[in-house]
């Protein structure tokens, strides 16, 4: 197990380095300009100077290695310092990955955005799981019943209808039509009493519902398939033959076994919490990680886009690994070589 893990981790490192290079190269080639949003009255010579001050005119490899050094050495050191309070080396003059748009450290920006994203997307993920599991189990247990048919239809709708459409329809109904819910998410709102909690719930209602619906749809299909698979297996037949109650079989045996792949699936989906549902954040104005990425892309903020997409890649790789490990722990039949 340990050997397998270390082997996988060793593989992950070159993968991530290749990814970081590919991302950097692509971003570097992209014909975008950080001075593009300045007013027209700013003359081209001044724009050139601004680009110079951002270090844009240095050769590619120098910028890449600089980013690598800042991202892999300086930023982790800073984090360690911040957490432990120790001072390691000359932290004052240590260069950080800085966004071109805000000239502030990218890591700070991300940390600032995390709460919103975690709240909205994370909560919707949890809600989605809570809806999906029972529906999946019942649908499978009563395959082709009316419950299954309706459940299937709703979950099919759930992952066939794009979230931007569901989001827009909800805004049309609840914000414009009924004016029950705010259409703009207030990131500075802080809950301290019941009315403000109520407001927080109101502003989270639409984005969370849209995303939860989407997540639940996918997961419930998966759960259903997993339970169905188990229903036809020998051990279920044996249990039935022993005269066990159907419900007992379902809850005790089938559920446990069919949760295996589902848990893996849930783990695999965790990175999407961070990549932030870009679209949903855009539609409901939740200024989280996804929105940060979009602003970065639109204003050619290369250090920001590079660091963010690389972090996403790291998360994907890590959670893939984690999913494998969870599977191994839960299912003793699997042995790692």
């Amino acid at each position: 197990m340990l050997k397998y893990l270390s082997k996988r981790l060793l593989f992950a490192i070159p993968t991530l380095i290749v990814i970081s290079f590919v991302l950097f190269a692509l971003l570097d080639l992209a014909p975008n300009d950080p001075t593009g949003n300045l007013p027209q009255t700013i003359p081209p010579e001044v724009r050139e100077e601004i680009r110079e001050s951002l270090g844009l005119n240095k050769p590619f490899h120098i910028r890449y290695f600089k980013w690598m050094q800042q991202f892999f050495i300086n930023e982790p050191l800073n984090l360690i310092e911040e957490v432990t309070g120790l001072e390691i080396g000359d932290s004052e003059s240590r260069l950080r990955v800085r966004s071109w748009l805000t000239r502030s450290p990218v890591v700070d920006l991300i940390i600032e955005r995390l709460p919103q994203t975690l709240w909205v997307v994370g909560l919707s993920y949890i809600v989605g799981i809570m809806i999906a599991l029972p529906i999946g189990v019942i649908s499978a247990y009563k395959q082709y019943s009316w419950f299954d048919q309706i459940g299937t239809f709703i979950s099919m709708v759930g992952f066939s209808v794009p979230t931007f459409f569901t989001g827009l329809v909800m805004i049309l109904i609840f914000s414009v039509g009924l004016s029950w819910l705010p259409s703009i998410y207030d990131t500075t709102h802080v809950v301290r009493d019941l009315p403000s909690l109520w407001f927080q719930i109101k502003q989270m209602a639409m984005p969370v519902t849209v995303l939860a619906f989407y997540n639940a749809a996918q997961l419930s299909r998966f759960m259903r398939a997993s339970v169905l698979e188990n229903l036809n297996l020998d051990y279920v037949r044996t249990a039935r033959a022993k005269g066990l109650h159907d419900r007992a079989i379902l809850l005790k045996h089938i559920l446990r076994n069919s949760m295996l792949p589902v848990v893996t699936m849930i783990a695999l989906g965790v990175p999407t919490i961070f990549t932030g549902a870009i679209i949903t954040e855009q539609v409901f104005r939740v200024n989280g990680i996804g929105q940060l990425l979009i602003t970065g892309i639109q204003s050619a903020d290369i250090p920001l886009v590079q660091s963010l997409s690389f972090l996403f890649a790291v998360l994907i790789v890590l959670f893939n690994l984690l999913a494998d490990v969870i599977y191994g722990i839960l299912d003793p039949r699997i042995r790692y070589e």
Partner: peptide
């Protein structure tokens, strides 16, 4: 599989 797809798509299209 490890590539963050949506950002990548956006960047490639711009590119």
């Amino acid at each position: 599989l490890a590539l963050p797809l949506l950002p990548l798509l956006l960047v490639i299209i711009m590119l």
